[in-house]
Structure formats: structure tokens, C-alpha cells
Simulated scan of single mutants.
Amino acid sequence: MNLSCIIIDDEPDAVDLLELLIKQSTEWQLKAKCYDALEALAFLKKNHVDFIFLDINMPQLTGMELATLLPPQTKIVFTTAYSEYAAESYTFQTIDYLLKPITLKRFLSSVQKIEPYFLKHQSERSVNAETDRDYFFVKSGKAFRKISLKDILYFEGEKDYVRLVTLQEQLLIYRRLKDIEQQLLQPFIRIHNSYIINSEQLVKIEDNHIFIGDKRLPVSEKFRSSFMEIIDKKKF
């Protein structure tokens, strides 16, 4: 699973061991190694990571003190040589509590906690996104129009704006197609630099074109493979 993390620990040997375990056992991206709390705070202000490995006993600020300064949603795996902090650690968004020295067996056990944790939360976000995105509002003149996603045929990029084509009408949205794409989930599929279609409204695919509504739209070489990969899953 592709997750990002950082290590915060003032002991170089402990950092090196944890880095080695991450590289050998996971596909995670280790974005930084911070050797004190202040360095970590500076990094986290400018960079996002999925979770942090956080040592408890550090100079200047302990791991527990640092945890109180982080955004409350920060996910933490505590690392320490002392077991007495375990209960207190779970007052934060703690995924696991690793006692040093960290063995390969114990690290692999932690991986089995961390990855399912994020898979579960990603699934929940996906379900919520599907529920929340049945419609959206589009500014048209001085008013905001409510548009049902199921009624959309396609989006067409035209320089500095996007043409939204539905079953009933066409509206101009003063946004870039790329920005709109980032807010859409399937069944919306990018088929061309200029087009995103609602695959539920798709009527036919022929050669390098699709038919949707009364329109024939091109499928570009750039997007053909990803488009057909989705379509292949719907074939009998």
C-alpha cells in the first residue's frame, strides 16, 4: 500500500533501523527523518504525510508534548523503550505503540495494523463521497443552479471555461477542466484533453469515438488505455 510517513527520533541508530524496516517490508514513502521535535514541526507545517513514527523520549520537546502541538487528526505510531506511556499514547490518533528495540516480527505486526487502518478509512471516505456527490451547484449569472450528476452527459473544456452539457441544457462554468476532474468520481471518465464523460450516459463506442446523447466525441490516444480498462470491466 502506498502511504507516506516520517520518522521523528533523536537516536540515529533507531532511525536507521526503522528506515531499513520500512524499505524492506513496505511500499511506503519515507518523506523525512527528523532528529528533534522542532525540526519535525517545521517539516509538517509545509508537508503532508499519512502518519508519523514518533519517539517519546526526546530533548526539548518529548513525543507526548509534540503530539499535543500537532493537528488533532495526525495519525501516530509511537516508538519508545518505555512501556509506561502506552495508555497515555492512545489519547491521540494512535495506530500502534512500538517498543524498542523494534524487531522485524513486531514491525510486520504493526504493518498489519497500519495498512488496514488506512484502507478502512479510505473506504469510508469513498462511500461518503458517493453519498455527498449526487449533485452540485453551478454559478450561472447571479444564481447558483443545482445540477444532478446523473443528468450530466459530458464536460467540454474550452480555454478558460468548461461547457457542462446535461440532458436538458448547456451551462458555462468558469473553471478549468482539470480542476473539475479532481472533484469527480466514476462514472465520470476522462477520454480526451477536452472531454470528461458520464459513462452511465454512454450509448456506443466505435473505433476511436464514443456516442453520448446526440454527440460523437473523440477518444484520444492519451486516455484510450485507461478508458478501455474501465469499459472492459463492464463487458460480458
Rank of each mutant, 00 (worst) to 15 (best):
F137M: 13
P71A: 02
E65A: 13
T79A: 07
K113R: 05
E88Y: 04
Y85G: 07
T80A: 09
T74Y: 02
F53W: 04
S110T: 15
A37N: 06
D55V: 07
T91F: 05
C34Y: 05
N128T: 11
F43E: 10
V49T: 12
E124D: 03
M64C: 10
T103N: 02
K46H: 08
T62C: 11
K45S: 13
K46L: 12
S83W: 06
L98E: 10
Y97M: 11
N47C: 08
E65K: 13
A42C: 08
A37H: 01
S148N: 12
S109R: 10
G63R: 11
L44W: 04
N128W: 00
E124V: 06
A143F: 05
I76S: 04
S83R: 10
S123F: 00
I102L: 04
V138R: 10
I114K: 12
E65Y: 09
Y35S: 11
T103M: 12
F78S: 07
K139P: 07
L70C: 08
A86T: 09
F53Q: 00
S148L: 14
T79C: 09
L69W: 02
T74Q: 15
T131N: 04
T68G: 04
R133K: 13
K142G: 15
N47W: 06
T131A: 04
I56V: 13
F118L: 02
A87H: 06
V49A: 15
L61E: 06
K139D: 03
I56N: 12
A67Y: 00
S109L: 00
E88Q: 14
Y82W: 05
E39V: 01
I147K: 11
I114R: 13
R145E: 15
D132Q: 15
T79F: 03
V111D: 08
K139H: 05
A67T: 08
L41I: 12
H121A: 01
D55I: 08
V49I: 04
L41H: 09
L104W: 02
R125M: 08
L41N: 06
T74W: 02
F78V: 12
T68V: 11
N47Q: 12
K105P: 00
V127C: 00
F118C: 02
V138T: 10
R125D: 14
S126R: 00
L149K: 02
L104H: 06
C34F: 04
A129T: 04
T103W: 06
N47G: 07
Q93A: 14
Y82V: 02
D50M: 04
E65T: 10
D134N: 13
A81Y: 08
F92R: 05
H48K: 14
L69Y: 02
L99P: 09
A42H: 13
